[in-house]
Design a protein around this nucleic acid. Structure first.
Lengths: 221, 221
DNA sequence: GGCCAATGTGAATGGTCGTTCAGGAGGCTT
DNA sequence: AAGCCTCCTGAACGACCATTCACATTGGCC
């Protein structure tokens, strides 16, 4: 896919020439768009901005994406899909004990949102700019993750190892799952590697808080 | 910026051009801008959109606000100021017991974010479009609210009525406060009055979760 | 050597934007 | 009644937008 092999010497010796050799232009566009969306926000980043950052002109975008909108969806959907897969794996590997499942889920979820906080930030902040058709599968994935948590909570209650708060005598596991996810998701808004806690410590703290919230009995004494 | 100097009593009775609007134009502009920002987002709402919704033309905006940016700041700052005041009042009226203070804080904070969820949504979603100078006082207010929570937690630990999670033997009360605020703030993203829980029940649930998270001992038996 | 499919160019299209400003209308003060 | 003050209009400004399109340029293939 490289075309500057023979015409390098006198042509525009752009700084990113080596980078474009390394990966296909569609990857470079994705990366440039991600960086700019993260820094300035989707609606104010222009197609010209993105393509100039790759050393191309605006028209070339449309050889790789149908529209600016599809480009944003592509970026968000890929991180969202990865997140969903990681969550499923974490729970599946926990051996069926709801306490271990919840701990594994929170650990993976929090560590990912610390490490890839920019990706999470873009996915959460810019999703509103997607048109209705393209936003549907992202929302489906988020509901799926919420339902993973709800299922863990329900199993824990049924087995008697969780004793979550009740309002008027009943649980609302959906609201609890949302509360849990909200606090874990939004570490991406304030966590920085220069802060007081490492990712590992964040995972421990949030796992502990989650188990307290659901009233988990001690796992083994 | 303010009204007539000498005419006071019948100002409301004989409003100039009373046919048009029942309230001063600056209020109508604020309301229209708020509604449109909430629905479509600051950068895609045009000055023309806002003013057309008030029955005015675009130029008239600049008789009341210096810029579109100042208009957004005005909207966000007013709700943020109200929130900060309500939080302070709630804690001050709790009698000095950290458990009661935390409960009162969470109750007020959650109920407000359920009832005025659109205001909260706009404040949290659109704050990034403010320029650096105008964003400073909003951030100060948010830090102040976080510090209220940190202070409650510290007092609770000192008095021995809270036993929050530790990482490597230490508390991180700032991280705990952020986790607590994150989950309470973002009810505005999903709570709806048609859902399973009333505002009252939401407040109860979140208060209970908060007290569990910090390891509060039973208040009185 | 000639063809093809992929890929990039840069002008053109048909708008839109926030902000400014000269001018007008009407009521308040003197 | 005259002047002033507040508020509004509507045109103008200079810039920028996403997307399309006719037209290169390229590398691989027969």
């Amino acid at each position: 896919m490289s075309k500057r092999k023979t015409v390098v010497a006198d042509d525009e010796a752009t700084v990113t020439a080596a980078e474009r050799e390394a990966r296909p232009p569609v990857e470079a566009i994705r990366a440039a768009a991600f960086a700019q969306f993260a820094e300035r926000g989707y609606p104010v980043v222009t197609v010209r901005d993105i393509m100039k950052a790759c050393g191309l002109t605006q028209g070339a975008l449309y050889n790789h994406f149908k529209s600016k909108d599809e480009l944003l969806h592509d970026i968000i959907a890929s991180t969202q899909g990865e997140l969903e897969r990681q969550c499923q794996q974490a729970v599946a590997g926990a051996g069926g004990d709801p306490r271990a499942e919840l701990a594994a889920f929170v650990r993976v979820y929090v560590m990912r949102h610390c490490r890839l906080r920019i990706e999470a930030l873009v996915a959460n902040r810019e999703i509103g700019w997607l048109d209705a058709a393209r936003v549907a599968d992202i929302r489906r994935s988020r509901r799926a993750i919420r339902d993973i948590v709800v299922t863990i909570l329900r199993h824990g209650v049924e087995k008697g190892v969780f004793d979550p708060p009740r309002v008027d005598g009943r649980h609302d596991l959906k609201a609890m799952a949302m509360a849990l996810l909200d606090q874990c998701t939004h570490v991406s808004m304030w966590y920085g590697p220069g802060g007081d806690l490492t990712e590992e410590q964040m995972a421990k703290l949030y796992t502990d808080m989650a188990l307290r919230m659901v009233g988990a009995t001690p796992q083994s004494v």
